[in-house]
Design a protein around this nucleic acid. Structure first.
Lengths: 278, 278
DNA sequence: TCGGAAACGGAACGCATGTTCCAAAGTGTA
DNA sequence: TACACTTTGGAACATGCGTTCCGTTTCCGA
């Protein structure tokens, strides 16, 4: 996209109002392709003159030329619509991933049991429970991502980190009211199983995200979500896992929003503040 | 397509010149969406008045209304999923996420520029360079996931962690041969920008994964990947980011496999060992 | 061959839109 | 605080466009 390239190139030298217009150009190309200067200006909360100034700043002769560029891009984009689907199948790096990751998301979310989801969300939204996440090295990243998001919604969300000794010591201190989230894939360390067994003995309610219902962790968990983790490269893809986590986080957010919107409002305020900063 | 329907319905009662115009409308919708009455008339070998007559005959108020109809159809056809998602708000939690995350993967991977990908992979596979990943709190998880995977393929992959002071101190020690990977989303901390600027001054080659080409970090990076991060809940979804990271990791793996398969073989051996353990 | 009506396109009209200019508001500096 | 500069949006201007009207051409039946 020619216009997107130019915007990205000299995005830094744009003024505030010009940037607002540029964002609309990037996010709503139809508006500039089909619309008028006045409409684009209104959508960006700017004046018509600002729109024209941005166009010239981007190297176009005026809004008309910018519009032509966007129209050209859109026309090219929709022409092969049916044709382009067939061309890049599987051969290239990106196409391979595209198919694979789509399938991962599809099967991971598609196999979610509503009852299990509701149960897991209820436990994760329980303010009386502390939430601990136990993951192996290979998926510690997505685990931490889950902890960050969930931790923004509620208190007492922790990732069990460190070496085997440290983790098992933490698990020994769990209370029966606590909730444990385990991540289990084929290539994980064996001692995680032992840690999970310890937690189960302590009466901790557990949910596991695994790539197989036959995983040992699933046997010791009250609920299990099976995700697809097929990777195009040498490693597993954790996109399915992250998708499931996102569903859980949204579910908890919905549930907690009804009970206590105050915390989310505070978060929104922070975000809005950070948003306007930029 | 509304216009196509109407043309087909009363196609028999069209005059010769009107039929020529109608054919152009069907075969070159862009011409009527982006063009003018005169251009459409010229393409059909007819007069401007004939174009307007056809439009009214089809039940439209005039050419303008016909044009709006075609534009609306094209716009709907353009948005593959990303924006269409927002209109029919999914009823259930899982279905909403399924649509949304599929769209995130689709647009994130679909907008990858092959040249940028090849360039980024080449830099990330460069054994002489150290790789540093700079991310805000909200996406530290996916960043760490990337570091773990890439770190299994090559040496010297680090995440820049900790508070502002610690990070900027680390950045001050970067060498011009190093590579920096930055993650930039709307809700991020401002000091990340300052850190990225410092790195740019030091001559470090940088690639950024962002949700907008207008992000300040994109301005200071040699390459940028734009991902879709729309979330169904209160937070951004990092699935698109993770998908791009997976592509990068696979690309590096392919490249390094040709040069030195030895390290990957060792990794495979470890994995096989862990596999049989279970 | 003639007459009438339908079809068609060119040209003038009026309006919407892009462009340009300028004054006001904002921002940083001495 | 005052000043210079940048940024911004409103209003006038001019261009291009859609619409409409009307004269010409084509077609068909008598």
């Amino acid at each position: 996209m020619e216009s997107a390239d130019r915007i990205g190139r000299l995005g830094g030298s744009l003024t505030k109002a010009e940037r607002r217009v540029a964002e609309v150009v990037l996010e709503q190309p139809q508006l500039v392709a089909f619309g008028t200067v006045a409409e684009l200006a209104a959508a960006a909360g700017a004046g018509a003159a600002t729109v024209v100034r941005l166009a010239t700043k981007l190297g176009f002769d005026g809004f008309t030329e910018l519009q032509s560029s966007v129209q050209h891009d859109l026309a090219n984009q929709l022409r092969p619509a049916a044709q382009r689907i067939r061309e890049p199948v599987g051969t290239d790096l990106v196409g391979r991933h595209l198919q694979l990751e789509q399938a991962n998301v599809q099967t991971s979310l598609g196999s979610i049991d509503p009852a299990a989801l509701a149960d897991a969300v209820a436990h994760l939204a329980d303010a009386a429970a502390r939430v601990f996440v136990l993951a192996g090295d290979n998926s510690r990243g997505v685990a931490q991502q889950f902890v960050v998001d969930l931790g923004a919604l509620r208190d007492d969300v922790f990732v069990l980190d460190g070496n085997e000794i440290a983790v098992r010591r933490q698990i020994a201190l769990l209370r029966p009211t606590d909730v444990l989230v385990t991540l289990d894939f084929r290539r994980y360390e064996r001692w995680l199983v032992g840690a999970a067994v310890d937690a189960a003995r302590a009466g901790v309610w557990a949910v596991t995200v695994t790539d197989s219902l036959l995983s040992p962790l699933a046997a010791h968990a009250q609920r299990a979500f099976v995700v697809a983790a097929a990777g195009a490269g040498p490693f597993d893809s954790h996109i399915g896992t992250l998708a499931v986590f996102n569903v859980l986080v949204t579910g908890v957010a919905d549930q907690l929003r009804a009970v206590a919107t105050e915390r989310l409002d505070r978060l929104e305020a922070v975000w809005q503040h950070a948003l306007t900063d930029r």
